[in-house]
Each structure stands twice: as structure tokens, then as C-alpha cells.
């Protein structure tokens, strides 16, 4: 039983990992077909992962409504929004428009989801600005450098900034394309080395946390 519960999953990981790593080095149509098929399979399996997440959220809010916990009315709103969108979306086969005409599903997207999403992210501008006001004090040389880079980039992104400080546009581009690029590149190299090491650990069964806890 321990073979089925513990060793076989590790074996599956090892075999699939080695096969997919080897696939990259085999320039043959069959190899390309394998990649296409497996990518499609991953998309299908990912769909089931979504089911796990949704049922978990369903469960949390259903419990809240059943027990009439504080704020259970908001859970009802969440349910109504979700079920309404799902029913209308399925009715229109997931199409936002048919023959150029907006469907009810498209209407929900344009007049509900887009404004909600846009405003939700837009209010972050205020919180970032307020956090910056409180924490952006040039207490050290490094903090001063950070502050100056942020101010130059912000000024360089708006016409008013360029009007007040004509060099800010070019300086902002230089900071983003050269200085920022070099740091991103260094971080990318470091992260990638870590990712490759982790992938090897997973394939060879050193890293097993993805299998979950439990005695077996």
C-alpha cells in the first residue's frame, strides 16, 4: 500500500519530469506533438483544480449563511453575483457578443466587472501614495536613492513632469531601460538558478511537500 500511496506518485513525478525535460532536446515532430498534447492535458487538469478552489469558497460562505454569522448578507451577495453570472454566461455559451451585438454576459462584463476591477485597483494608488508619504523619508543614503528614482520615474511618465523638469522623460527611460533592467536581469538569473535547482529536487524526490502531509 505504501508503494501506491507514496512511491508511485514519486515515480510518476520522476518519469514525467525526465520525459518532459528530454523533450526539449529532441527536435522531432513526435516530440513536438507530445509537448502540445501534454500542454492541453495540463489545461484540462487545471480546470479541475479550479473546481477545488470554487467548492472551498462555496463551503466557507455557505457555512457563514447557515450559521447566520456576522456579515452573512455579504455572502449572499457573493452567491447572487456568482450564480447570476454563471447562469447568464452559460445561457450565452460564454460569448460576450454575438454578431457584433452585446449579450447579457457581455453587459455584465462591461458594466459590472470592468468598473469593479478598475476601481478596486485604482484605489490602491491612494494607499500607495499615503504609504509613501509616511515611509519615504530619506533617512539613509539608500532610501534617498530610492526616493529620487521613484520621483524621477513618476515625473517622467506624465506631461506635467516633463514640462516642469524636461530631462525627466529621458532620465526615466534610462532608469527603466538600463539601471532597472540590470537589476531585473540579476534577480531573474538568481531566481532561475533556484527554480532549476528546485525542479531537480522535485524530479529526484528530494522535495516532496507537494504530496501533502500524512503518515504515508
Amino acid at each position: 500500500m505504501i508503494f501506491l500511496r507514496r512511491q508511485l506518485p514519486l515515480l510518476i513525478t520522476m518519469v514525467t519530469g525526465l520525459v518532459m525535460a528530454a523533450q526539449y532536446y529532441v527536435p522531432h515532430p513526435a516530440s513536438e506533438q507530445l509537448l502540445t498534447t501534454v500542454t492541453k492535458w495540463l489545461q484540462i487538469i487545471g480546470g479541475f483544480a479550479l473546481v477545488l478552489g470554487i467548492t472551498s469558497l462555496f463551503h466557507v460562505h455557505a457555512a457563514k449563511i447557515r450559521r447566520k454569522e456576522a456579515g452573512w448578507g455579504y455572502s449572499l451577495v457573493l452567491y447572487a453575483g456568482m450564480l447570476g453570472t454563471v447562469m447568464i454566461g452559460l445561457w450565452h455559451h460564454g460569448k460576450e457578443s454575438v454578431d457584433g451585438a452585446m449579450t447579457s454576459f457581455g453587459w455584465i462584463y462591461s458594466y459590472t466587472l470592468v468598473p469593479l476591477q478598475g476601481t478596486m485597483f485604482a484605489i490602491l494608488a491612494f494607499f500607495i501614495a499615503s504609504a509613501a508619504y509616511r515611509s519615504f523619508r530619506a533617512r539613509s543614503r539608500e532610501a534617498a536613492v530610492l526616493l529620487m528614482a521613484a520621483v524621477i520615474v513618476m515625473m517622467g511618465r506624465v506631461p506635467l513632469g516633463e514640462y516642469l523638469f524636461p530631462l525627466s522623460g529621458d532620465l526615466s527611460s534610462w532608469i527603466l531601460n538600463v539601471l532597472n533592467a540590470s537589476v531585473r536581469r540579476a534577480i531573474l538569473i538568481g531566481v532561475s538558478l533556484g527554480a532549476v535547482a528546485l525542479s531537480f529536487k522535485i524530479i529526484f524526490g528530494v522535495e516532496r511537500s507537494y504530496l501533502g502531509g500524512g503518515k504515508e
Partner: peptide, 22 residues
């Protein structure tokens, strides 16, 4: 109210799109 509606609608949208594509 708007926050919970946002979660519900975006979840519903994701479900429909996943159903359609997957």
C-alpha cells in the same frame, strides 16, 4: 457590498470562461 459582488461576479465569469475553454 461592492467588494463581495466583485468577488462573486469575477468568480462566475471565471467559471463560465473555464467551462467554455476547458
Amino acid at each position: 457590498l461592492a467588494e463581495h459582488l466583485y468577488v462573486g461576479v469575477s468568480l462566475g465569469y471565471t467559471i463560465v470562461k473555464t467551462y467554455d475553454t476547458v
